[in-house]
Design a protein around this nucleic acid. Sequence first.
DNA 1: TTGTAGGCGTTATCAT
DNA 2: ATGATAACGCCTACAA
Lengths: 339, 339
Amino acid sequence: MTAKTHSDAAPTLEMVAAKAGVSRATVSRVVNGSPKVSPEITTAVREAIEALNYVPNSAARSLASRRTQAIALVVPESTARVFNDPFFATLVQGVGLALADTEYTMSMLIESEAAFDKTRRYLLGGNVDGALVVSHHTGDHSYANVSRALPVVFGGRPLDSVESVNHTVDVDNAHGASLAAQHLIDGGRTRIATIAGPQDMPPGVDRLRGFVETLVGAGLPADAIEYGDFSPASGAIAMRRLLERDPAIDAVFAANDQMAMGAYSAIAESGRSIPGDVAVVGFDDDRYAATAVPPLTTVHQPSLEMGAEMARVLVRLIDGETVQPSTILPTSLVVRESA
Amino acid sequence: MTAKTHSDAAPTLEMVAAKAGVSRATVSRVVNGSPKVSPEITTAVREAIEALNYVPNSAARSLASRRTQAIALVVPESTARVFNDPFFATLVQGVGLALADTEYTMSMLIESEAAFDKTRRYLLGGNVDGALVVSHHTGDHSYANVSRALPVVFGGRPLDSVESVNHTVDVDNAHGASLAAQHLIDGGRTRIATIAGPQDMPPGVDRLRGFVETLVGAGLPADAIEYGDFSPASGAIAMRRLLERDPAIDAVFAANDQMAMGAYSAIAESGRSIPGDVAVVGFDDDRYAATAVPPLTTVHQPSLEMGAEMARVLVRLIDGETVQPSTILPTSLVVRESA
DNA sequence: TTGTAGGCGTTATCAT
DNA sequence: ATGATAACGCCTACAA
């Protein structure tokens, strides 16, 4: 096989026009489904397009129309974490699902510290009609400029709630954590600990808050707290520390299922049983939850729906519609066998 | 807060030129780092750019230059699976990492059946300079057209090895499976089963092949085979069936770690112990492997490196360099406690 | 070193 | 219903 040059000049609208014996304007109309083109001509143009295997050049199209039909999904470079995170994966799916019904394409930007400016330029360079920003916990207000230039929808409330961001879609983290805590309390547990998430991430603080408030409300101490970074390994480490600090712990609420899995292993290696010796409740209801041993009781959050909702809101925004600035999706407890 | 219109006309190169008192050509040169521009003018232009907060419009830029500085990462809609797959997640990371050193942006396309044509149009519409296609198992030769129009690098060998695709980066699946099987044999196991992956996916067939060949080579029967779809749930189901068919099974090789996790739960619920009663080896060495209980012995595959290598090959291809058509990355066995 | 001018492939505004 | 003809914002010979 010979080295290809990939230079077979792509067919242009002009060529189609020539072949169909009409003007470029007409071809453009057919391509864009304008209603005012006679059936015969439409057919002729369609055939020419087919014959030439013509595909509109989107750069030219967006330059002229000032629309790109693409949106960006910006995810923080903590990619290592975020990407492996089943919750996030499902969210992306939701975005894709919602977008499948539209003509929009999603272009995902992994935002690394190094390439931050690259992301910014991409967003501001007219590459997309809008952006979806997921769980950013960058200290600065990096998206202030961006959201001034194009519609932006945030997934999860931004850390600096001071700055009133335009639109956000979030899940009721605090309430979910509260449900988890209450379930543990109702189960008769009295020494309840928690493996909290990073406190520089909204879900991390919201879940901790919901947990603490509920325990305190029930007159229980809420002092057995260790922090993890949402990874399984960090969950295991946190659990070991918890058990070391207080061997009497009889329940633990992990801020996400991955850390709960880590806790499972730490509990097992300490010779304790689940839920006999210590009950555990997670958060997310990810795909590993149901098949864990024992199946994990956890807080279900509508990740798929969240992604889809974010996409829908953004599209509406792009279309110039007015959308309520904040959407909160409900969470619920899924009781299985670990608590 | 008032509804923003997002219509604050973005600054153009022309405006920068005016403000800096030079021609557009000069601004363009500065923006593109042309060496032949006097220092003073360069500075002046830079200041104007800064002042106006100017960002080049990429549609215009790519229309004129015929380059987009973007590549597409196409992933099959089996998104549900693929996306949650830690292996895939790591691969994406690798791509991002390699790209961080370049000026290229990655735009990820989730390829759904419904939107297949959307993907094709995107690829052919001059949106990207090249494409990375991951583990596609679509029956048709959907990418024949595409790879004729622009550089494409496949991740994992394509199913139809007949069609000699230009470039692929793969992992040595068969050898990895062979290592796993041999380890089980060396451990004295005699009734070894496997939970194979889908046979319409190359990794699925290659891993099964490596496993079978090694068993047969050792004079052992290779008839205890069940298939899963790489999800934890499917692994559990397959394991149950395996144990039902032959209660004497004393070892199992799962085609990926997620299914191995599923096997763990099925083995546990059958009252057997790991590795006492049945040893298990997985494949992938994903992030859950090390913290599983017991820690999972598995085949490590360089997912990160694979993603990075794919990106590197593609960039070279785009730059017109000649690259060897096939790259095979090595796999290795990580012995932990499950076998 | 810097400026001039034409063109990249579409869309959109006017006429017709 | 269809066709000229400007833009769209930038790059790039070519000229100065």
